[in-house]
Design a protein around this nucleic acid. Structure first.
Lengths: 194, 194
DNA sequence: CTTTCCTGAATGAACGTTCCGTCAGTTATA
DNA sequence: TATAACTGACGGAACGTTCATTCAGGAAAG
């Protein structure tokens, strides 16, 4: 037995993701997280300094999986349009099939926890991180067309509709089928053309 | 609200809007609301059954003012494109200049409080409410072009970018000037064309 | 005086965090 | 190998804090 079973930390992380997504940070008492992970309350504090640290750890975990999923089958040889649509479709598919991850990220980014992180991702171009495919694609688009497309416009027309439609799909008000997904991706590309 | 000072309820409502927007529902204790409104804690419970009722009352207040602001200068005689852009610009302007209202609405809609309300607004076409200008315009667009544009796509491409860019503007990461506002409105119209 | 309005200390529930006893697994001793 | 001593992961009762809500009583209005 290792000092700290790597398994138990993982179990806590998964249980926390589920609880946070379903009930929100504030309505997920540590006692409830413990029950959901089938673990004593004290054990959570063995693996994570406090509740905040747990929330950040869940984010890190979710974010890295999302990055991976979005970049899947990415082909830099395709046209900018095809790349764009591929990324959007990947993004929607992944989040549609991982509603817990989506709800968690929404909460995280719109809370004091993630208000910095959000833009660090796009406005800095940091080293030692895997290059964000959306950022590279945007740079690509700007270079090809000499149009001066502002980054905030690109982000708004790209992620805005995705987030909006995912919310509606998750709340059960909208049936987000393959056709609608393709339509969203195509429309968001049209929005960027001039 | 029976026989009670009209004024004091209003003061509480405004103070609550400010506090909720700045600190969130969960970090706005009733004691703090009372201090901010310069009333006793008990008085809040004279005007509102409990904290939840207060939150719903703030929503009703904010929502009605927003509806009014968006419909300003609305001219049904203009082209669908011009109408669309006018509505979007109105919406962005109002929310940009009323950040408390925006932050409150964001919180409200993405909390258990407003998960129903949100879509009641669009998916039902209820009587005895003032007609939603976006809904009428959408019906208009669908009639003119015989394209079968699904409502969820329209909503996503219309409100998605607006919400996204407003978030960034509010967090100080983006300078949402008149040019960008026009660009967003124009892009969202382009997204709907086929 | 009677009634209405208002207050903030008091209340109890719920929460995050701590702390210590328990015990399975590991090492030391013979 | 058998036994004793040690170690640190683990659980959950207990603690202190914070919150929404209440209520007894004071102030104002009539």
């Amino acid at each position: 037995m290792p000092k700290v079973s790597q398994n138990k930390a993982e179990i806590i992380l998964q249980a926390a993701l589920k609880q946070f997504a379903e009930n929100g940070f504030h309505c997920s008492p540590v006692s409830q997280l413990a029950i959901c992970a089938d673990v004593g309350v004290g054990s959570i504090y063995r693996y994570f300094k406090d509740k905040d640290a747990l929330i950040h750890a869940v984010f890190k975990h979710v974010d890295s999986q999302l990055q991976q999923a979005v970049s899947r089958d990415f082909d830099a040889g395709l046209s900018a349009q095809k790349q764009h649509i591929q990324l959007i479709v990947n993004l929607i598919y992944y989040l549609k099939e991982h509603p817990h991850e989506f709800k968690f990220l929404e909460q995280y980014y719109s809370s004091p926890y993630g208000s910095e992180e959000k833009h660090a991702k796009f406005l800095r171009s940091e080293i030692n991180e895997p290059p964000n495919p959306f950022v590279s694609l945007f740079a690509n688009i700007c270079q090809k067309n000499q149009q001066k497309l502002p980054l905030p416009l690109y982000l708004a027309m790209t992620f805005g509709p995705v987030i909006f439609v995912l919310r509606d799909a998750l709340s059960g008000h909208v049936d987000l089928d393959d056709v609608l997904i393709e339509q969203i991706a195509a429309a968001s590309w049209r929005a960027l053309e001039t």
